[in-house]
């Protein structure tokens, strides 16, 4: 077990109950359904998929904010899913999360100083002077003036708040960062500042990162490898540029072709694959390959057996039985 992070057949199911007086189980939502994945130290993995595909549940399961129903999460060989809640808390300084909405993820009644102090001291109490010194350093690292540490979150703009959220995630000196749509709520000109900051931090501090986004061009730019998720399962995984430029799985193809390119000449020349309908309900997933009801290349065999995520080309895995034929 030399991998830095390993997800072994990870499953997170949510039971659904109906009725208020006579509660009865009405089924399970398989939000994360058998994810097999490993990350090297210092690697950046991009996770893409449509809303409701289970990206955020996967992130929260790795963080152990939601405990998994089956499978295991190994961080540096240690099985996090076996730990009790207290032990998870003790481990958590090693893995931290950045959330999408910087307006909701910072406590409005805590100053920047207090929010960061709390995060730093998860590794043990510090003397006041040392603490303030550390907070100042953190703020400088994320590009904020240290003299603003006594301010409250509402005094900052969206981009600045996201910098504070990044500083807070860095405060306990984690090894793994999970960023759940960290730039989706920001304007284009601010978005590029935050992406540059995240990349620089990962490089300088040898951080491993799972970067979740629905924006494929952002993910392609930032990550080493891309994993494509659909209805709780991985459809394809491979080197970032290869997945976007020559996608193997029909779903990845449709996803990539749906993204408008900001270049009118290329945009008009290309063929767009338009999927019909919406993703099916995870409460009642289709049989066989979960993508088959929307897949343009579907045939009978796809409806029967669930395809495994297999190596189709060197370093590239995809879960589709028709890849050689299409």
């Amino acid at each position: 077990m030399s991998r830095f992070l390993e997800l072994n057949e990870l499953k997170t199911y949510f039971p659904i109950f109906l009725g208020t007086v006579f509660r009865r189980a009405a089924g399970t939502v398989k939000a994360v359904d058998g994810i097999q994945l490993d990350l090297e130290k210092g690697e950046i993995l991009g996770l893409v998929g449509e809303s409701g595909c289970g990206k955020s549940t996967l992130a929260r399961t790795v963080m152990q904010l939601i405990r998994n129903t089956g499978g295991a999460v190994y961080l540096e060989g240690r099985n996090l899913s076996e730990l009790n809640p207290r032990q998870v808390r003790a481990e958590r300084p090693n893995f931290q999360m950045i959330f999408q909405d910087p307006y909701a993820s910072l406590n409005p009644r805590m100053t920047v100083h207090d929010a960061l102090a709390e995060a730093i001291q998860t590794r043990g109490k510090l003397r006041k002077a040392v603490l303030t010194q550390k907070i100042a350093e953190l703020l400088t690292t994320v590009g904020l003036p240290p003299n603003q540490m006594r301010r409250y979150p509402h005094e900052f703009s969206g981009g600045q708040r996201q910098r504070i959220a990044i500083a807070r995630a860095l405060a306990p000196e984690p090894k793994l960062i999970i960023a759940d749509e960290p730039v989706s709520a920001l304007d284009v000109s601010i978005q590029s500042q935050i992406i540059n900051l995240l990349l620089r931090l990962c490089r300088e501090r040898q951080l491993t990162m799972i970067f979740i986004s629905h924006d494929i061009s952002v993910v392609k730019y930032i990550s080493d490898r891309i994993a494509v998720m659909y209805l709780g399962r991985l459809m394809e995984i491979g080197p970032a540029a290869a997945v976007v430029e020559t996608p193997l799985h029909p779903y990845t193809r449709a996803l990539v072709s749906a993204v408008p390119i900001p270049d009118p000449i290329r945009e008009r020349a290309r063929q767009r694959i338009i999927l019909q309908g919406d993703p099916p309900s995870p409460l009642d997933p289709p049989s066989g390959c979960v993508f088959h009801p929307r897949c343009p290349y579907v045939k009978e065999a796809c409806k029967r057996a669930r395809p495994a995520l297999e190596e189709k080309l060197p370093q590239r895995r995809a879960a589709c039985i028709r890849i050689g034929e299409i």
Binding site: V188, S189, Q191, S192, Q193, I195, N196, L199, R200, S217, V218, K220, Y221, I222, A240, A241, V259, I261, P262, D263
Partner: peptide
């Protein structure tokens, strides 16, 4: 500043 038109590895242009 749009990553789509950008080469990997180079820092993104920022305003």
């Amino acid at each position: 500043s749009i990553p789509a038109l950008h080469q990997k590895g180079k820092p993104l242009f920022t305003i």
